[in-house]
C-alpha cells in the first residue's frame, strides 16, 4: 500500500522545535485544523446570522436601521393569518415531500442495488434532476404546469383520460400538490444515492444467513436491511427536511406563493416581506421562527441516533 511505503523517509523526522511540538499536540493541532472552517463559518455565516436575528427584534426597514421592539414582530406574526397559513403550508409541503422522496428514493435505491447491464448509466441518470440548476428546472415545471399548454393535460386529452383543462397552479390544493411533485422530482436523487450507499454497506452474509432461516424478500428487507439502514435514513431525512423547509427558488419561480398564499413557505414569505415589502425586521423574524423548530428536530433525531 502506497501509504505505508512513504512512512520510511518520515521516520525520525518528527521535529522538536516549538512549532513541531504544537503540531504534535493533539489539542493545539486540533484547534489549528478546525480554524479555517470556523473562520469562514464565523465571518460569512455566524456574524450575518447574528445580525439577522437581531433584525428580527427590531422594526428595521430597508432604508432605516429601526429600533428594538422586543418580541413585537413575533407577536404580530402569531396573529397574522398569512403567517399561520405559511406554517401550515410549510409543514404540509415538507412532510409530504420528504415522505415521498424517502419512499421513492428507497425504492429506487433498492432497485439499482444489484448487478445489471447499464448499471453505471442508470446510476448517473439517477442524479440528473439534482444537477440542473433549480432555477431552470423550475421553469420547466412552470411550463409543464401551464393551465392551457401543459403537456400532461395534452397527453391525457390525447389518450382520452381528460377532457377540459387542468388548473394545476390556480387551485390552492392542486397548486400545493404540483409544487410538492416538482420538489420530489428534484429531491429523489439525494435520497436514492445516499440510501444506495447505505445498502452497499450491508454485508451479503447477513442476507445469506436470513435466507437459510427461510426469510422471503420482504422479511429480508424488514429484518435485515431496514434496521441497518435506519441511522443513515434518519440523517439523510434530516438533511432533506432542512433543505425542503428552506425551499425558495422552486416556489418563487412557479407560483410566487400564490394562488392566494396557498403555496407560500417561510423562505418566500420572508423574502416578500423583507425585500419586496421592505420590512426587514419582520422578514428576519419569519426566518428566525423556523430555527428553533429545526434545531429541535435535529437534536431529537441525533439523540435518537445515539441511543440506537
Amino acid at each position: 500500500m502506497a501509504g505505508i511505503e512513504v512512512t520510511a523517509p518520515a521516520r525520525a523526522t518528527r521535529p522538536a522545535d516549538l512549532i513541531g511540538r504544537i503540531l504534535e499536540n493533539r489539542h493545539a493541532l486540533g484547534v489549528l485544523m478546525v480554524t479555517p472552517a470556523l473562520l469562514i463559518l464565523a465571518i460569512f455565516l455566524a456574524y450575518p446570522f447574528g445580525l439577522g436575528v437581531w433584525l428580527g427584534f427590531t422594526n428595521a426597514t430597508i432604508g432605516q436601521a429601526g429600533h428594538f421592539v422586543g418580541l413585537g414582530n413575533f407577536r404580530y406574526l402569531l396573529g397574522d393569518s398569512v403567517f399561520r397559513l405559511v406554517v401550515l403550508n410549510t409543514t404540509l409541503y415538507a412532510a409530504a415531500a420528504v415522505v415521498c422522496k424517502l419512499l421513492l428514493g428507497l425504492l429506487l435505491a433498492l432497485l439499482v442495488n444489484r448487478e445489471f447491464r447499464g448499471k453505471r448509466i442508470v446510476r448517473a441518470i439517477m442524479l440528473l434532476p439534482w444537477i440542473v440548476p433549480t432555477s431552470l428546472s423550475a421553469l420547466v415545471f412552470y411550463w409543464i404546469y401551464d393551465p392551457t399548454f401543459s403537456v400532461i393535460t395534452w397527453t391525457l386529452r390525447r389518450i382520452g383520460l381528460a377532457h377540459g383543462f387542468i388548473n394545476y397552479l390556480g387551485d390552492p390544493n392542486l397548486a400545493r400538490a404540483s409544487l410538492i411533485a416538482a420538489n420530489i422530482w428534484r429531491g429523489i436523487p439525494f435520497f436514492a444515492i445516499g440510501l444506495l450507499a447505505g445498502l452497499q454497506t450491508v454485508s451479503t452474509t447477513l442476507y445469506e444467513a436470513a435466507e437459510i432461516d427461510g426469510a422471503g424478500p420482504w422479511q429480508k428487507f424488514w429484518f435485515v436491511t431496514w434496521p441497518l439502514l435506519l441511522p443513515l435514513t434518519v440523517v439523510v431525512t434530516v438533511f432533506s427536511t432542512i433543505m425542503t423547509v428552506g425551499d425558495f427558488q422552486l416556489i418563487w419561480i412557479i407560483t410566487r406563493g400564490g394562488p392566494a398564499n396557498a403555496t407560500h413557505l417561510f423562505g418566500t414569505l420572508a423574502y416578500q416581506r423583507a425585500i419586496q415589502g421592505g420590512f426587514i425586521g419582520e422578514g428576519a423574524a419569519i426566518s428566525a421562527f423556523v430555527l428553533p423548530v429545526l434545531v429541535a428536530a435535529v437534536l431529537v433525531s441525533f439523540h435518537y441516533l445515539r441511543r440506537e
Binding site: L41, L45, F49, L55, F239, G246, F248, A270, A274
Partner: peptide, 14 residues
Amino acid sequence: LSYLVPPVILFIPL
C-alpha cells in the same frame, strides 16, 4: 447546526 441557517435572511447582512 450552521447548516440550518436559511440563506434568504443572510444575504442582506452578508
